[in-house]
Amino acid sequence: MKVKSILGIGLCCLALSACQQSRKPQEEGGKYPLLTLTPEDRQLSVKYSAVIEGKQDVEVRPQVSGTITQVLVEEGAHVHKGQVLFIIDQVPYRAALQKARAAVATAEANEATAKQTLDGKMSLYEDKVISDFELRTAQNEYKSAQAALLQAQAELTDAQNNLSYTEVKSPVDGYAGMTSYRIGALVSASMTDPLIRVSDDSEMYAYFSLSEKQVLTLTAQYGSLDQALASFPEVSLELNDGSTYAQKGKVDVISGIIDKTTGTVSLRAIFSNPDKRLMSGGSANIIVPYDRTQCIVIPQGGTYEIQNRIFAFKVIDGKAVSTPIEVFEINNGTEYIVEKGLQAGDVIVSEGAGLLKDGTIVSTPQDEQAPTDKKKEA
């Protein structure tokens, strides 16, 4: 009898120990927070490096050669279209213009003389005084005189243009840049550096790039580049000092050509610049917003990666089941927007997914509330 009692006690202890061991994973599993998924709205954004240029950023160059006799522009000043900025020595070009005018006068006189000669020859020919050869000769001399007059007139126009080019004018409204050219400097139309730059900064362009994959995604989403451009949201500009520019911008151009070197496509956003805060040649970040409505959002702490694939643990029948998911490529660093793999109503482990194993027993929200219910009944 004593032996049976001892064996019975031993079996009870073993059963109790096994029961406690079987409950241990559940107690550990209960430490993992769970999340029931519901659709939510999110606004994400992504930054792209951008280069800022004026609406018109023009290099002003001379069209004739000579020495600068006057500098009429102040560096950094606001200039108007047609305003004279530099004057190149006009003396040789005025002389060339006078010669051209004299050549035109001579050509006009020669043309008039040839016309009179032709008229006389025609009268003599009609009276059968001269031969066909003499008449044709007079006609050819008149045509030659006409051609000489046209050439002289063209040279006169060229001389007038060259004289006008000695006044180097601003082609646009805007602000003048810096210049190293002063009175006495020799300039020419073939010079490498411009005399000065003038930037029309009433509106500014910000140039940035998207990858080929991103552009293809936009095309697939909207049907064409034109429709993608029309649907593109307003963008913001983050300046180099970290501040956000007050004016919103609009993407107005998407290049249809992929850069072979970088594999990217260029885009242009236009910003109004009423306070002249944006300067041509500056750099900034374009901030593109992405609004997602009624999407499935999960914390990144509830995921893990294997070979560039992302997984989450979905709770099914109290067990953690590893589930592959596809996420939106843009995120805020703490959450993922799930495109495929999870849906509303699913329960997932929201933290510590990297410590779990597939099939681990975890408590459900009902299990976590059970002890509280029992205390209330007590």
Rank of each mutant, 00 (worst) to 15 (best):
A269Q: 00
V198N: 08
R268S: 06
I361E: 12
S22Q: 12
Y222F: 15
E368Q: 15
G302W: 13
I337G: 01
A109F: 12
L218I: 08
I298K: 04
G174T: 07
A159I: 01
M191K: 05
K99G: 03
P299D: 09
V215P: 04
I286L: 12
A18H: 10
C19F: 14
A228W: 08
D193H: 11
K340Q: 02
C19I: 06
C19D: 06
T157G: 02
E40A: 03
V91K: 08
V58R: 04
F313W: 08
A102T: 10
A320P: 01
V91S: 06
L225V: 14
F232R: 01
L356M: 15
A145S: 09
Q153R: 15
R61I: 15
E28G: 01
I88D: 04
N285Q: 15
L150A: 13
G242R: 06
E329T: 13
E111L: 10
Y165V: 02
Q83L: 06
V79R: 03
F311R: 00
T334Y: 15
G281P: 09
R197H: 13
A230M: 05
S131P: 00
L239A: 02
L72N: 15
G249W: 05
R182K: 15
E111W: 13
L355I: 07
T117A: 12
V58E: 13
S164K: 08
L163P: 00
G66N: 04
V3F: 06
E28H: 08
G359E: 08
A154Y: 14
S164I: 00
K99C: 02
S266N: 13
L85G: 10
I9N: 04
G54H: 09
T69D: 09
E377R: 14
E111I: 03
L163H: 03
A96G: 05
K314L: 06
